[in-house]
């Protein structure tokens, strides 16, 4: 078949070694930026660290054969939601660099809670799930995803569209109503 012939001309996806390297690259990027989100005191820096985390997670989606999701992550999350957040930062602060420091006691509680949950989660993961990984029969395509989304999940899909509409109107109303009262 012509098409198969053309298909041979397309190179194979990177082998396991390369994808392992990529995984560690993205994982370290994601983890380090997440730590940055926690530790950074400047809210604008926090947002930038969050952007790196989101991008690295998109990279992980690529490695997990979820290309569409990766694209959505980049476009909607990194491109849309984060920009929204940054707008929020700009609109709610006369000087974005201003810092609100937490109290010592709160920091102690936060560290305790974080350590407890981290240990619990890691123990659960290591003990509960065997390390082997099932291989996929074939690479899932966007067509498969589309079938699932508009087949089994049609009603949730429609509901969530309505929800988005409601949210849009609601957010616009919330953000605007106060200003109208403020300036009679």
């Amino acid at each position: 078949m012509m098409i198969q012939l053309l298909a041979q001309t397309t190179p194979q996806p990177p082998d396991a070694g390369a994808s392992a390297v990529l995984f560690y690259l993205f994982a370290i990027l994601a983890g380090a930026s997440a730590l940055g989100v926690v530790l950074s005191r400047n809210i604008v820096r926090t947002a930038v660290f969050l952007l790196f985390t989101l991008t690295a997670v998109a990279g992980l989606y690529f490695l997990l054969d979820a290309e569409f999701l990766a694209a959505v992550q980049l476009v909607v999350y990194a491109g849309g939601t984060l920009v929204l957040i940054i707008f929020g930062v700009m609109l709610t602060s006369k000087s974005p660099g201003i810092r609100y420091e937490p109290k010592i006691g709160e920091v102690a509680v936060a560290i305790g809670v974080s350590v407890v949950s981290a240990v619990a989660l890691v123990m659960a993961i290591v003990r509960q799930f065997p390390a082997n990984s099932a291989s996929v029969e074939r690479h899932p395509t966007i067509a498969d995803l589309g079938q699932t989304l508009l087949g089994d999940y049609l009603i949730p899909f429609e509901l969530i569209s309505v929800l988005l509409l409601v949210v849009m109107i609601g957010a616009a109303y919330l953000a605007k109503a106060r200003r109208r009262e403020g300036r009679p």
Partner: peptide, 27 residues
């Protein structure tokens, strides 16, 4: 070398904990 389910789950756990800490620490 063999990246499997574990690796992703542990990374996700890390992200989760970072999220928890962020929620508690930011004013």
């Amino acid at each position: 070398a063999q990246v499997g389910l574990h690796h992703y789950l542990i990374l996700a756990a890390m992200l989760f904990v970072c999220g928890l800490a962020t929620m508690m620490l930011k004013r």
